[in-house]
């Protein structure tokens, strides 16, 4: 019953990934990263990781629906 949970997981984390990646790219070099995250642009890197995670979930869900 219900629907494939991987669809909303993929969509939500994909959206988070996109927001963080774009925001991280736009704010690269910001003082914020020196103050908080040891000079690492963590938004950009974690955003990219979430994009990959979201894409994998969407692919799994798409694959399950096709078969």
């Amino acid at each position: 019953m219900g629907f494939d949970i991987r669809l909303p997981i993929g969509l939500m984390f994909g959206t988070f990934g996109m927001l963080l990646t774009v925001y991280g790219f736009a704010t690269s070099g910001s003082e914020d990263y020196v103050v908080h995250s040891l000079g690492i642009n963590i938004n950009l890197w974690w955003g990219l990781a979430l994009l990959v995670f979201g894409a994998v979930m969407l692919a799994l869900s798409w694959n399950a629906r096709r078969s």
Binding site: L20, H36, G47
Partner: peptide, 11 residues
């Protein structure tokens, strides 16, 4: 609050 910059803080 210490380690997350805006963006990741939301997460």
């Amino acid at each position: 609050v210490r380690y997350f910059p805006s963006g990741l803080l939301g997460l």
